[in-house]
């Protein structure tokens, strides 16, 4: 009897207490967001504001908020579809970064001469911003415009140059972090490998890669952020579908409300991408020694 009563009493209490616990995490961001929107509304409330205020953004671009996946043909698509196209590009460019960054990183991390040779060059290249890569990449891929190989791959020069910009922006942190991680393999583990006379393959899979994994994942996390940052630059010249193109196109045709909604999408997707890589690394990396 008593225990039954206790149970009945405690269940709403548990929910209430949980809410109370979450309260301090929910209220501050909601208040902050509210005040920022309020300030924005005040600043853009005049007759001819430079940007539409939040209320106008919501009413003008409602179809983009309400239905992310509509498709009226051509470039008139929901933002979810634009995002999806951009994610495909980022996926290809980022995969390239992962594969080439980790491979080159291991190469220059394990070979002192290679490291001395290439490190200064990489240090300079990694500071070049995505927008600066775009003209170079366009120029290079433009010259392959008529190439049969591109046609066979089902792609074109502009598409490739967009993917290349994403790749070249995000490859450096993967490369540099992998190289450092490989160099930091503790002497103890190297000694174990020496005593046991591990084969190169076994040293690689059982010691080098797991030991460098925390560094590699740090690089991967920085890289996913950078590759998403590069999407707008990458799609500027690329007509068609893609969130970067959409933002650029909305700006050119004066549809500022749509542009602002698209920015929110970009931010949220960027956050999700970062979280995904973070949780993958948390799941895979054994840091406790």
């Amino acid at each position: 009897m008593t225990s039954n009563n206790l149970l009945k009493q405690s269940s709403p209490n548990v929910v209430f207490e949980w809410l109370q616990g979450q309260f301090k995490f929910i209220v501050p961001p909601v208040l902050a967001l509210g005040s920022l929107l309020f300030i924005w509304q005040l600043l853009c409330g005049g007759e001819t504001p430079p940007l539409p205020p939040p209320t106008k953004v919501v009413t003008e671009a409602w179809k983009f908020i309400a239905d992310p996946f509509f498709d009226n043909g051509g470039t008139d698509k929901g933002l979810g579809r634009h995002i999806f196209e951009s994610l495909k590009r980022v996926g290809i460019g980022y995969s390239g970064s992962v594969v080439i960054g980790i491979s080159l990183g291991i190469l220059i991390g394990t070979n002192v001469v290679m490291y001395r040779a290439f490190d200064p060059i990489f240090q300079v290249l990694r500071t070049v911003p995505p927008l600066a890569w775009l003209p170079i990449s366009s120029a290079v891929f433009e010259s392959f415009k008529e190439s049969e190989v591109l046609r066979m791959l089902g792609t074109d020069a502009v598409e490739l140059s967009a993917v290349f910009v994403i790749f070249i922006t995000s490859v450096w942190p993967v490369l540099m972090n992998t190289a450092v991680g490989v160099q930091q393999v503790p002497q103890d583990y190297r000694n174990v490998a020496k005593v046991l006379r591990l084969s190169r393959f076994e040293y690689f899979t059982k010691i080098l890669v797991p030991s460098a994994a925390p560094y590699i994942f740090t690089g991967l996390r920085i890289a996913i952020g950078l590759s998403w940052l590069a999407i707008v630059a990458a799609e500027m010249l690329k007509g068609g579908v893609g969130i970067g193109f959409f933002i650029w196109d909305s700006y050119n045709s004066g549809k500022y409300s749509e542009m602002i909604v698209a920015l929110f999408y970009v931010g949220i997707v960027g956050l999700l991408l970062d979280k995904v890589v973070f949780y993958i690394s948390k799941f895979l990396v054994q840091t406790d020694s």
Binding site: N191, K194, R197, K206
Partner: peptide
Amino acid sequence: KPGPDRMVVFQNYSLLPW
């Protein structure tokens, strides 16, 4: 050179944490 015929027990154990 090092070899398994002279196996070492290291002070800091040197186990692979993964």
